[in-house]
Amino acid sequence: MTALLKAENLEVAFGGVKAADGVNLSIDEGEFVAIIGPNGSGKTTFLNLCTGYVRPVSGEVWLDGKPITAMAPRRIARKGIARAFQIPQLFTEHTVIENVMLALAAHRGIWQAFAPLDRPDYRAEAMALLDLLKLADHANAMAGALPEGLRKLADVTVAMALKPRLLLLDEPTSGVSALERFPLMDTLMTAMRAQGVTALFVEHDMEIVETYADRVVVWDSGSVMAEGKPSEVMKDPRVLKSVVGA
């Protein structure tokens, strides 16, 4: 079976610091894979490499067996990789539902110069998605006025409106209070399963990783130090030293 996403020997450096040092990783359809590692180890850089925001010096990225290395982010998005950001990226002067409808329109083709964006089919589909992510009550709120936790969910909703095959989540629970983390992840996981989305998420919270990830990949100094089932990897002394500091 061809991996949904495959990265091979990815290398990139910033000012002499290697952010990706021969990274090899593959993700199968239907997996929920977590990336953990210390700050500055290259986790977000890997997402940037997969989405075309950063071009590798060497190495290749394949989606479904087809190369996507160094394509522009918009081309990769059209091929089925969507992204939610550590700092939510929303159209702050639009309402939440308008953000989602714009993503739906982008997926179907933005070149509609006279049909309105706000039309019944888009609105119904956007509301269904917002309902799935428990944001229906905030559909008409301005995206820029939402609290952090809801903005995170809105950012994921926008990404999911693109009907991606692979969703990349950069620290979905950062900036969210300890009490809200698990409910937020429950909501995200339910929505992703309902939509049949494969996900790769960067996370610092070990409990979150152990609870929700099928597989965990441990990053260190721009390369993969270990990977496997969370319950097994978390026992690895190297991982404990690198990630937990124990």
């Binding site: 081309r75 998005a77 990226q89 159209f91 714009l102 933005i110 509609q112 110069a113 990404a159 693109l162």
Partner: peptide, 26 residues
């Protein structure tokens, strides 16, 4: 009509978040 269309709304979106727009495939 143009300004209310997806293309017109994307125009305003360039102003607020060009990065997100590109990540929508636009």
């Amino acid at each position: 009509r143009y300004l209310k269309s997806p293309l017109g709304q994307a125009l305003a979106a360039v102003h607020t978040n060009e990065v997100r727009l590109e990540y929508l495939g636009v």
